[in-house]
Amino acid sequence: MTVTDTPTTDREAGRVTVLQASNVTMRFGGLTAVDDVSMTVHEGEIVGLIGPNGAGKTTFFNCLTGMYIPTEGRVELGGELLPPKPLKVVRAGMARTFQNIRLFANMTALENVMVGRYCRTSAMALTSILRGPKFRREEEATRERAQELLDYVGLGRSGELLARNMPYGDQRRLEIARALATDPQILLLDEPTAGMNPRETEETMQLIFKIRDSGLAVVVIEHDMRFIFALCDRVLCLVRGSLLIEGSPGEVQSDHRVIEAYIGGDDEEETA
């Protein structure tokens, strides 16, 4: 249990806290996948989450987004306690992407993004059947916003392609656009560059900077160390469910425990 917290409050003083996860613990039966992890994310900040395979990063994400109900601990978004329901989490302003892309494969790119608008629109069954002016306006606005977001991530011309037919890198970006469509305050990206070539990785990095600059907070899980250290303002390293270290990329990079965790961890990973 080596929770080495290096508080960096002085640097972040005065900035708005978006996400505050305190002492989150997740157990499955006898297995403790996430053990007492705390994380604070501020507006306009990119936080990285690293750790060897099986360190509990994705489980931690699932706890944040309401897919799992954490055994212990609390998650607050914008000062309010988040209910552990994905639906309400999204409405409250947190959106995510998935480690293994989970697009709606047989819908077009545009429709995928439009689904993201679902929780910010209101047309119900009867309105949709009657098609009054309000419905048309909303539908038009949804479409426009979705197209805007596609343009934003650089897929403006692919709107009519089925998601399943899109190149891999585009699918990753489409997932980001879909998440952005929910108007989040904070965006959680689960390995956004997995399987990408250097050029695509670079593009993704620029995209994340752009999102950050628009005022959103971003949390990124990634294995690619060079990517994460170039991207993030702050990095948390999880090992076997616990927080090993939190600090600036420079601090984390030079910490010998992190290196050990990665090199020494590999053997254990094989048997785990």
């Binding site: 987004t65 999204v90 995510r96 989970r102 709606f104 819908m107 429709e111 993201g116 679902y118 929780c119």
Partner: peptide, 19 residues
């Protein structure tokens, strides 16, 4: 769109705010 999203991937639909 919500229905089709559910059909395609229920978990993802939920995570995108679809009821």
């Amino acid at each position: 769109r919500g229905w089709v999203a559910i059909r395609e991937d229920e978990r993802a639909a939920e995570a995108m705010g679809v009821n």
